[in-house]
């Protein structure tokens, strides 16, 4: 069975290590604004982690005019083909959860791809809020 990113919010301290790990893994200069995962500090035990749900019937995949968004066979994650993406931003609007991010400098969509099977956020999470299992 495919592994999934399991989030246990009660353990989260909103330290934002996941955001840092994600940025350094994916973004050229580690810009935090383009992290594919977000940690929101809302008080102990109420912190929220938001990242792509990798929906089965994903709206982003449906609206993409150039099929730049496809599901990876190995991880089950929806991945952006950066060469194909035309940066129209339609997927950002279509995602009902607001999980698509947009790199305005590169003019491409960015989203969680589970790091091709080794999510950096889960590797670096100090409290095991994020686990890949």
């Amino acid at each position: 069975m495919e592994k999934t990113l399991v989030i246990t919010p009660s353990r989260c301290t909103a330290c934002k290590t996941c955001e840092l790990a994600c940025s350094f893994k994916h973004v050229r200069n580690g810009a935090l604004g383009l992290s594919r995962i977000r940690a929101f500090m809302r008080g102990e035990g109420k912190n929220v982690i938001l990242t792509c749900f990798q929906c089965d019937e994903a709206a982003c995949v449906k609206v993409c005019p150039v099929t730049a968004l496809t599901r990876s066979e190995s991880t089950g994650a929806i991945e952006v083909d950066e060469g194909r993406c035309i940066g129209c931003g339609l997927c950002s609007v279509a995602c009902p959860f607001g999980h698509m991010n947009h790199d305005s400098a590169m003019r491409i969509a960015v989203k969680c791809d589970l790091c091709k099977g080794e999510p950096a956020c889960a590797t670096f999470c100090p409290t095991r809020t994020l686990e890949y299992k």
Partner: peptide, 22 residues
């Protein structure tokens, strides 16, 4: 019409979608 999606999917801005999820 092209994606076969309900128009309501495309009437919320990304920031508000995220706020609602939160």
């Amino acid at each position: 019409a092209k994606a076969g999606l309900d128009a309501k999917y495309l009437t919320t801005c990304p920031q508000c979608s995220q706020d609602q999820t939160l």
